[in-house]
């Protein structure tokens, strides 16, 4: 089902992931988070932007344990754990943060 962002329709797959990563704009994350009743803070955006950078460089969405390690290294050791990430994204960094970032579902994530 397509989602509507600023009057423009974005195609998504059956699980709500954006069909075309290149179409992504910040409004996509805003609309998706609103549907989940989640307000995006700077901390959320740090993760979303990091995921987009990671995908740009490696062409994959990182596995959760790769993400937690990288977040700890980049944003501080206190943030490099799944508790912090699940605190931000209750449905899980893969299912929620990657989706907001317009990335495909991480490889190996069921």
């Amino acid at each position: 089902m397509p989602i509507e962002v600023n009057g423009k329709a974005f195609e998504t797959d059956e699980e709500g992931y954006l069909a075309n990563i290149n179409e992504w704009e910040p409004g996509v994350a805003e609309v998706m988070s609103k549907e989940d009743d989640l307000e995006l803070t700077d901390e959320h955006w740090d993760i979303i932007n990091y995921l987009r950078e990671y995908y740009e460089e490696y062409q994959i969405a990182p596995a959760v344990r790769v993400l937690t390690k990288a977040v700890g290294k980049k944003f501080g050791k206190d943030k490099g754990n799944s508790k912090y990430l699940y605190g931000l994204f209750p449905y899980g960094p893969a299912k929620q943060a990657c989706r907001y970032a317009g990335l495909p579902k991480p490889t190996g994530c069921v």
Partner: peptide
Amino acid sequence: MKNFSPTYAALGDY
């Protein structure tokens, strides 16, 4: 086609 050669560089992270 998808260029997956950059993905090999992620192996270290894994």
